[in-house]
């Protein structure tokens, strides 16, 4: 089995994986990081969104072996070591950007890339950017408000 090493939420990790292992399977089943969710498993819903080298990707549609040598950040890696929420996480709490919470890790990871790349993003850009993340509870309104508030702080 191929051996891979990556930086995961700031820590070095090595693992032996089958070639067919998806990145999300490595994260959830092997490494116990169950904050990354699997919704549709067909790269449409975005619940499995993580960052690879700072870019958001759908971890159900990337092989774990392709993460070899890369930096991967999951929802567990966003808050500071003392538990202080990231600006996007804090904004989701403040603006009630979630109900059941299933889509939330993916929403937060996706929004974090937007806010870092495009601070000050407006409502239209936010709605366009979140096209790859589906929420079945909120109607998106408070999610967009949360991301807008985080975007105004200029920090992801």
């Amino acid at each position: 089995m191929p051996a891979i090493s990556l930086k995961l939420n700031g820590r070095s990790v090595t693992a032996e994986v089958e070639a067919r292992t998806l990145l999300v399977e490595l994260l959830r089943e092997r490494l116990g990081l169950t904050g990354t969710h699997v919704g549709c498993d067909t790269s449409q819903c975005g619940a499995c969104t993580v960052h690879v080298d700072g870019r958001s990707v759908k971890s159900c549609t990337m092989l774990a072996v392709e993460a070899d040598g890369r930096e991967v950040t999951t929802i567990e890696g966003l808050a500071a070591a003392d538990g202080t929420l990231s600006p996007v996480q804090a904004a989701f709490r403040e603006h009630h950007g979630l109900q059941c919470g299933f889509c939330t890790p993916g929403m937060v990871m996706s929004a974090t890339e937007l806010v870092r790349r495009n601070p000050g993003a407006g409502e239209r850009e936010i709605r366009e950017w979140l096209e790859g993340n589906l929420c079945r509870c909120t109607g998106y309104h408070n999610i967009v408000k949360a991301v807008q508030a985080a975007a105004q702080t200029g920090r992801g």
Binding site: S43, G46, R55, S56, V57, S110, E113, E131, G132
Partner: peptide
């Protein structure tokens, strides 16, 4: 094309 995550890969 697709969505931002698809476009990143």
């Amino acid at each position: 094309i697709g969505d931002p995550q698809v476009r990143n890969r």
